[in-house]
């Protein structure tokens, strides 16, 4: 009994180490797809139940928002013109955030079945959320823009200065590093995405955030600033995934 009780841990430790090694050299896609299928479905059910429980309140909020947006359209005022414009020009899929990871990732309830794949832009009504890093059959994992390992090509909306936005651990802020060390940057400047080649992983001109503090001095190698993101990452719910370029009226890609 004691010997068996010692062999089992040794064996399972070995299996774990082999799994870690395998995951580092080859991507264990079938295992992740299995996790997406089993646990993604359970997360979907949990999320649906909590959403259903708060449906009456949500409906009222949506009705109010709808009324406000209709009024804004009628009066010609478009406060989120950039977001609306960005979403209208692409094929998009809307999704709910159904799970939150400890390491700045969220689960969406759409997957490869809806045309979602790796390296797609995710945004919501406020601004940039992040990019898809894994897509399972029915769920997708999004790395938030605030994650330390995330980096997004960006530019200042008015001066068009180019830089890179990275996550700042634990503060919910972003750090903008401008390539031009002498670039003028002021508190309140809006930061938008630069856009990537072939629109993957980031489509251009999605609002990211606004500058809250300028860090570097003009003599430093790069000029950096702290940016507060427009999207509220702790209360993410409905988001939009850009699945491809395309005209309105096209069928779903792939």
């Amino acid at each position: 009994m004691r010997a068996a009780g010692r062999r089992a841990p040794a064996l399972l430790v070995l299996v774990s180490v082999l799994l870690i090694a395998a995951d580092h050299w080859i991507t264990l896609t079938p295992l992740r797809a299995f996790g997406s299928g089993v646990y993604g479905s359970l997360e979907n059910v949990t999320s649906s139940v909590t959403r259903w429980a708060s449906d009456a309140r949500r409906l009222e909020t949506v009705e109010r928002e709808n009324a406000r947006l209709r009024a804004e359209v009628l009066t010609g005022r478009r406060p989120t013109a950039a977001v609306a414009g960005a979403a209208a020009a692409y094929q998009v899929v809307s999704a709910h955030a159904i799970g939150f990871g400890g390491d700045q990732t969220v689960t969406l309830d759409v997957g490869t079945g809806s045309g979602v794949a790796r390296d797609m832009t995710v945004l919501n009504g406020d601004g940039l959320v992040g990019r898809v890093v894994q897509a399972g059959p029915s769920t997708a994992t999004v790395l938030l823009a605030t994650a330390p390992s995330s980096s997004v090509g960006a530019r200042l909306e008015t001066s068009r200065e180019v830089g890179l936005v990275t996550g700042v651990p634990d503060r919910g802020l972003l750090r903008l590093s401008l390539l031009n060390a002498d670039a003028a940057v002021r508190v309140g400047d809006r930061v938008v995405t630069l856009g990537s080649e072939n629109m993957r992983p980031f489509v251009p001109d999605v609002p990211v955030g606004s500058v809250v503090a300028v860090e570097g001095t003009s003599g430093a190698l790069t000029r950096t600033a702290l940016v507060r993101p427009f999207a509220h990452f702790s209360t993410l719910d409905l988001v939009t995934v850009v699945v491809g370029p395309g005209r309105p009226g096209d069928g779903a890609p792939q």
Binding site: L19, A22, L31, R32, F34, G35, G101, Q134, T141
Partner: peptide, 25 residues
Amino acid sequence: LAADIAPPADHSIGRHALVLCLIGY
């Protein structure tokens, strides 16, 4: 292992499995 593959986990598969089989033992 379940915690390793349940989305949105994005870390190495096997990390929690290794830690938790040791802790359970």
